[in-house]
Design a protein around this nucleic acid. Structure first.
Length: 527
RNA sequence: GCCCCCAUGGUCUAGUGGUUAGGACGCCUGCCUUUCACGCAGGAGAUCGCCGGUUCGAGCCCGGCUGGGGGUACCA
């Protein structure tokens, strides 16, 4: 269709196409060749257009092996996406975001807004049998559930698909798309020293050894990344990748392609660290004679040092975030924000709202730095959205304590994470904490004890021990002494909480009750 | 080294040819006030990485450069 349009446009457009080529692919060798072709064929549109690949996304071009979005895929069926973590460790926030984006895609209004629900497939990439563990699998599933990211199919174990992998491998071996080779890493290195660093390794077929995929000597392997646009790799610079070990077990780049094919995945959305794996997988699809899915590579998440986020940057796993008292709602909201905007002037969203608004093509191309401060802020907002019942439940689960409801009620406006609760309100349940500095500064200070005992007397004579009555009594002390409110309230606070941080003082006193409050004040005065 | 990707205040983003470059986090000031937090009202902070080009006009288009990142495994 695009070719026809070009046809109609005539020769004049050829010059423009040349310009586009120059702009888009720059000085890549294959672009040079294409441009030369265009120049050589001049007005021979048919010949030139034959070489001119399908424009994708309006004006991107590619050459040779092109795997762009084809209309047949786009409109053929519902979107099938997958998240495929390898169980070699806990679920990282980077992985969590990849899972989230896939989930948003599947739960969203559908590609092109056709309203069709998508399917979210969960696959466990466990072909690295050295490092994969069952415990990690369990932990990853647990983290996904906690985040509220439910899947429609799976978890599928990649190793369970071994027979199919073997069958596909045999096929490639039989039709010459792959060959055995016992070349070692040293052999590859030596090959490059001899042929040049930008020369991909090409082995010679042998009767046994690992299996390598044949990469074409010429041309490029390109694809239209849904986030980045055209991405292309010169075939000549790619090594023939090893797709199966000498013992016959398959490797990642081969297994992924076969599994994505079998699961009829339509969109592969994953981290940018996979971008250079894509041509290898594309070549597997091609060797198998199959149409590949569309790809979208997410920018990586960085730590404050600008490097790929990892354990050394602190709370980098979902479990750690949970332990730090963050809410799944906030974690989802925050990591979704790291990479795309949902609205020009608002950032607070629920999963459902994000699913409605999420657009793959709007995802940022540049890496984002994980900023815990902002997560805290968002967490506070989500926390305040919760009903007191719900928040109490979560807090009781988090602290392992019960009977927190009343304390939660008077603390909820003052905490940003679940972890903030106990340091603020724990004294209401377990009694005052020990903070000698606060005691010295507030009670041992000039007049501290006098004020405190005046406050004690006032509280002792309150008729009904309610918040308004308590407040009235203490304010009377303020008036009578001529002190500032804080000078009266702080000693009481330190007496009952042990420290200067607590929920509202009247509320705290009321919750503790007269007996306990007076006892605590007496104890403080006696200290 | 080689292949690939990226580039708007400290951080996350909006902005696709004409804007005083918008919002959020953080920071600062004031209000509220009982500590903390919330809320409200203000403020500081960006030569839109640099240099060219196209254009009457460029953060937006093109090229080069620089910088950053990813990959470079018989790991995933």
């Amino acid at each position: 269709m695009d070719q026809h349009r070009l046809h109609r446009a005539g020769v004049a457009r050829l010059t423009e196409a040349r310009q586009v080529l120059l702009g888009v692919v720059g000085r890549a060798p294959h672009a040079r060749r294409l441009i030369e072709d265009l120049d050589r064929f001049g007005t021979d549109l048919d010949a030139a257009l034959h070489r001119l690949p399908q424009p994708a996304r309006g004006r991107h071009v590619s050459a040779d092996q092109h795997f762009g979005p084809s209309r047949s895929i786009r409109h053929r069926s519902i979107m099938r996406v997958r998240f495929a973590p390898s169980p070699t460790g806990a679920l990282h926030v980077g992985g969590a975001r990849a899972a989230l984006y896939n989930w948003l895609l599947a739960r969203g209004p559908g590609e092109g807004g056709d309203g069709m629900p998508g399917t979210f497939v969960l696959r466990i990439e466990d072909t690295d049998r050295e490092r994969s563990t069952e415990a990690n699998v369990a932990q990853i599933l647990d983290a996904l559930r906690w985040l509220g990211l439910d899947w429609d199919e799976g978890p599928i174990s990649q190793v369970a698909n071994t027979p199919r992998h073997q069958q596909a491998l045999a096929q490639l071996l039989a039709d010459g798309h792959a060959y055995h080779s016992d070349a070692t890493a040293q052999d590859v290195k030596a090959y490059k020293e001899q042929h040049g660093a930008d020369r991909g390794f090409r082995g010679t077929p042998q009767s046994s050894g690992a299996v390598r995929l044949r990469v074409p000597g010429q041309g490029v392997t390109a694809f239209n990344d849904l986030i980045r646009g055209e991405v292309s790799f010169p075939n000549a610079s790619m090594d023939d990748p090893v797709i199966a070990r000498a013992d016959g077990t398959v490797l990642y780049n081969f297994a992924v392609a076969v599994d994505d094919l079998d699961a009829r995945i339509t969109h592969v959305v994953r981290g940018e660290d996979h971008i250079s794996n894509t041509p290898k997988q594309l070549l597997v699809f091609q060797a198998l004679g199959q149409t590949p899915p569309q790809y979208a590579h997410l920018p990586l998440l960085h730590g404050p040092d600008g490097k790929k986020l990892s354990k050394r940057h602190g709370a980098a796993s979902v479990q750690e975030l949970r332990d730090a008292g963050y809410l799944p709602e906030a974690v989802d909201n925050y990591i979704a924000l790291l990479g795309t905007g949902f609205a020009p002037d608002e950032e607070f969203f629920t999963l459902q709202e994000m699913a409605q608004r999420f657009r793959l093509e709007r995802v940022s191309k540049s890496p984002a730095v994980f900023d815990e401060q902002k997560l805290r802020h968002l967490n506070g907002r989500h926390l305040r959205e919760l009903s007191t019942e719900e928040l109490t439940e979560r807090l009781e689960r988090y602290t392992g304590r019960t009977g927190l409801r009343a304390a939660v009620e008077i603390s909820r406006e003052k905490i940003q994470t679940l972890a903030d609760f106990w340091p603020l309100a724990g004294f209401l349940i377990d009694g005052p904490v020990d903070d000698p500095r606060a005691f010295a500064k507030v009670i041992d200070a000039d007049g501290g004890r006098d004020t405190l005992s005046a406050a004690r007397d006032a509280l002792a004579s309150v008729q009904e021990f309610t918040v308004p009555a308590i407040e009235a009594a203490l304010r009377t002390v303020v008036e009578r002494t001529g002190l500032k409110p804080g000078q009266v309230f702080q000693p009481v606070r330190v007496a009952i909480a042990g420290t200067t941080i607590s929920p509202g003082i009247f509320e705290s006193v009321a919750l503790l009750g007269r007996e306990r409050t007076l006892a605590l004040i007496d104890a403080a005065l006696a200290k």
